[in-house]
């Protein structure tokens, strides 16, 4: 019955605490006025960390079949493919043929 793992109460509560603390940190970092683009990098790093906590402990991926984690990772991978290749266009529209 490995799929039916009950997540310990302590884990759930400490995950919640960590998420709230990280939210406070995210806001604190905002008021520190870190120069761009590092403000976005820090904010996204914190958000990703929070999302990972939710996925591992609230959604139980830590205890679950590993293939479910693979599915989640692939979804982010394909999102990055989408945005990454689109940016190759939108960020470089201004370039002329001379750069080649």
């Amino acid at each position: 019955m490995s799929a039916h793992h009950a997540i310990p109460l302590k884990t759930l509560l400490s995950t919640t605490l960590a998420l709230v603390v990280l939210t406070v940190v995210t806001i604190a970092v905002f008021y520190l006025n870190i120069p761009a683009p590092f403000d976005v990098v820090v904010a996204l790093f914190l958000a990703t960390f929070k999302a990972t906590l939710v996925a591992m402990f609230f959604m139980g991926l830590y205890y679950d079949e590993k293939f479910n984690t693979v599915v989640l990772i692939f979804s982010f991978l394909f999102f990055f493919v989408f945005i990454g290749i689109t940016l190759l266009d939108t960020l470089f529209r201004e370039s002329s043929i001379s750069i080649w």
């Binding site: 079949e65 293939f67 599915v71 979804s75 999102f79 989408f82 945005i83 689109t86 940016l87």
Partner: peptide, 25 residues
Amino acid sequence: AKLGMWLFLFTEIMFFGGLFVAYIV
């Protein structure tokens, strides 16, 4: 059922992903 749901969440991520792409661009 769980695997099915994770695949559905995959589609949700790509669904919102489109909007995130518009945002980033």
